[in-house]
Amino acid sequence: MSPAASTRGAHLGMLLWAALVGFSFPAVGLMSELPPLSLTALRFAIACAGLWWLARRAQDFMPAPRLLPLYALMGLCLAGFFGAMFWAAHRATALSMATLYVTVPLLAFLMGRGVGVERPGWRLPGILALGALGALGLALAEAWHQGGRLRFGIGEAVFFLGCCSTALYPVLSKWGLARGWLPGTASVRTFWSLGAGGVLIGLVGLAVEPVGTLLDMTVLDLALLIYLGLCSSALTFWLMQRATSSLTPGAVTAYGYLVPFVSMLLLFASAPSQVGWVWLPGSLAVLLAMGLLMRDSGRAGG
């Protein structure tokens, strides 16, 4: 596959990623209140089970011992983000968390520049800043609709550390690929990083959560968990790893700006009267940023 075709496929895959992540939030909302960390560990286990049939066929499926620390660090990034998100969920406002999350692409770009996997220049940071403003506008529009408020306390500080953690994940992936350490097969990288993250999250869940309440899971909960594990974990992280081969960490994480846009579309489909002109500036800024990102990546080959 030519570099241009690979880059185009990476962008299309990340568009699907944004749709899958956006659609996962309503699914999570339908589930019963269950231990979140243990639930995430089960979700990652289901994702690994779904990836097993694809990853095991690769010649480089079994990692070399020297790669285990890198996979553990990548898994720690996943565990750190989900752990921080669940801990902060009851201590931070939704608006504050949504606002802090728009920093992830810029954080990924800065980290990528630090380890040499991002190109120097001002265009990508400018595009990321435009997307951040658009996503922030969408978050403020949703907060205005729901009556939320912006603040910064210990919950927000912990969640920001989680944002730094998730921004580091594609940076480590790109760094490992650039040095020829990580395998070229996206499914293998996804399998082992999700596996390591799931083990870490599960251990924390066993220590701090009433794991026995998982027995209260209903049939609907189980069906939704399987869907989230296969579609919103296995497929989304595979798409991210696949895109990391062609795009830089900043470009990959920039598609997170589309998630609130997808949420807005879902709200418009279910309750069109609740979506007004206040959503328009943020939507236009996000779409413009994504268009510029695709054009520039196509010209530069990723």
Results as ranks from 00 to 15, higher is better:
A55Q: 11
P35A: 04
L177R: 07
P170H: 14
A41R: 04
A243L: 01
E209V: 00
L284F: 15
G250F: 03
G147A: 10
L161W: 13
H90F: 00
G282H: 09
G29F: 06
A300C: 05
P105A: 04
M264P: 14
G83Y: 00
R56G: 07
M31W: 06
S233P: 01
F159P: 08
D60C: 04
A254V: 15
G153D: 08
G256A: 10
G302R: 02
R56C: 09
Q274K: 10
T185F: 01
A186L: 09
Q146F: 12
R151C: 10
T213P: 02
Y101S: 06
A19K: 08
P125L: 12
L133D: 13
P281L: 13
S232P: 01
L107Q: 03
S38Q: 15
P69N: 03
L100Q: 08
S232R: 05
R43T: 07
S193I: 02
G282E: 02
V219M: 12
C48Y: 00
V278M: 11
W238E: 10
A10D: 08
L168G: 02
C77W: 06
Y255K: 13
L106P: 06
L161T: 12
L42W: 12
L194E: 01
L54N: 14
L266N: 10
A167C: 02
F191N: 11
G197F: 13
L130S: 10
V104G: 15
R295D: 00
A64W: 09
G180Q: 00
S297R: 07
L200T: 00
A55S: 05
E33C: 04
L265M: 15
Y255G: 06
G126T: 08
L222T: 13
C77S: 12
G212V: 00
F25H: 14
A108R: 14
M14V: 04
T248M: 05
R295Q: 10
H90D: 04
L37F: 15
T213V: 10
F61N: 05
L78K: 11
R179H: 14
A223I: 15
L130T: 05
G282C: 05
F109S: 01
A251I: 03
L194C: 05
G153W: 09
P249D: 03
M290T: 08
S96V: 13
P281Q: 12
H145L: 10
P210W: 12
F109Q: 12
L280W: 14
L200P: 01
P105K: 06
V286A: 02
L128H: 02
